[in-house]
């Protein structure tokens, strides 16, 4: 054994010994997190691995026979127009939905923080949409947007904005907007509450110092509120992006992905392919792609926003 090898070996040994000592010192802590870790592996880790495995097989749902097809599903997906249309529709759904929830949430939070009458009432009232089961909210919005009996058409007709009722959810060009509105209504309260908590942690004297420095309300928002709220906005939009990306019940209840699949997102398509059509392998392959897309997004997003070495 050469001297270099020997040194490496002892280095490894001591590192190993150090880890062992570390585990031994913290044995109780490791024991305590063990049940949670086992649980996580069972309900998160295993399904992810199983989905990866399944995506490599042709696996009809009503059959016990699985045929290994390798990356064939992925090749098929990347060669199909449907995939790119789904990507566009999913991106549009997430971008408009998250932007809407963030902006409205911010607007509401800023006003709820102010010294307004009935502030406590409004704080509670604004949480209600979030507390209603999503499917029920979706049904309500389907009614509101109903071409003949819906409030929206009735109001627009009364105001003379339109001459005859429009079927928003039946129109392939605007149906997705009809669904996004419902999703924004449901998701805004969460953003507002998170932002409000963030706003309340900004010291009041920063605003006072800024006012004395000559900052108007807009300047204060731009130079104090936004930078101070940055990490909160970052986390909230990241969570909202993930939730909106995987959201299923609102779209499914309102349109079922139609008309002519214009409101379908990746998640709706996965359900249709995998569970309705029984093509588990292809559905799994779509799921894997969705999973990787979200992972990539999260990593890039956090990288970009924490570039300055700031910690969240």
């Amino acid at each position: 054994m050469s001297l270099a090898e020997e040194r490496t070996q002892t280095g490894d040994d001591s590192r190993l010994a150090q880890s062992a000592a570390h585990v031994k010192r913290n044995r109780r802590a490791y024991l305590l997190i063990a049940p949670a870790a086992v649980f996580l592996v069972a309900v998160v880790g295993y399904p992810i691995l199983e989905t990866f495995r399944l995506s490599l097989y042709r696996s009809p749902a009503d059959s016990t026979i699985e045929t290994f097809v390798g990356l064939q599903h992925y090749v098929d997906i990347f060669n199909s127009d449907i995939f790119y249309r789904l990507l566009w529709q999913t991106g549009r759904w997430v971008a408009v939905g998250v932007a809407g929830k963030t902006l409205l949430g911010l607007l509401i939070a800023v006003h709820l923080k102010g010294d307004i009458r009935g502030r406590k009432f409004f704080r509670t009232a604004f949480l209600i949409p979030w507390g209603i089961p999503y499917a029920i909210s979706a049904v309500v919005f389907r009614w509101i947007e109903h071409p003949q009996f819906g409030y929206l058409n009735a109001i627009l007709l009364k105001l003379g904005v339109i001459e005859q009722g429009i079927g928003i959810l039946g129109n392939p060009d605007i149906a997705w907007l009809g669904v996004v509105v419902a999703d924004i209504w449901i998701g805004t309260p969460f953003m507002a509450i998170i932002f409000l908590a963030g706003l309340q942690s900004i010291p009041q004297d920063l605003y006072e110092a800024a006012a004395i420095d000559g900052a108007e309300r807009w300047h204060q928002f731009r130079y104090i509120t936004l930078p101070q709220l940055k990490s909160v906005i970052l986390m909230a939009t990241l969570l909202s992006t993930i939730w909106t990306f995987v959201s299923f019940d609102v779209i499914w209840t309102m349109t079922g992905g139609g008309p002519i699949s214009t409101t379908a997102t990746l998640v709706i398509h996965i359900y249709q392919v995998g569970l309705q059509n029984g093509n588990l392998g292809l559905g799994a392959a779509y799921s894997v792609i969705g999973f990787l897309l979200l992972l990539l997004f999260a990593v890039v997003y956090l990288r970009v926003y924490t570039r300055g070495g700031e910690e969240l």
Binding site: P203, D205, E208, A209, A210, A211, I212
Partner: peptide
């Protein structure tokens, strides 16, 4: 306050973090 042309030093300093 914006229009008074005054400057104030706060106990907490109130520096923009």
């Amino acid at each position: 306050p914006q229009d008074r042309n005054i400057a104030m030093v706060f106990q907490s300093y109130a520096l923009y973090p």
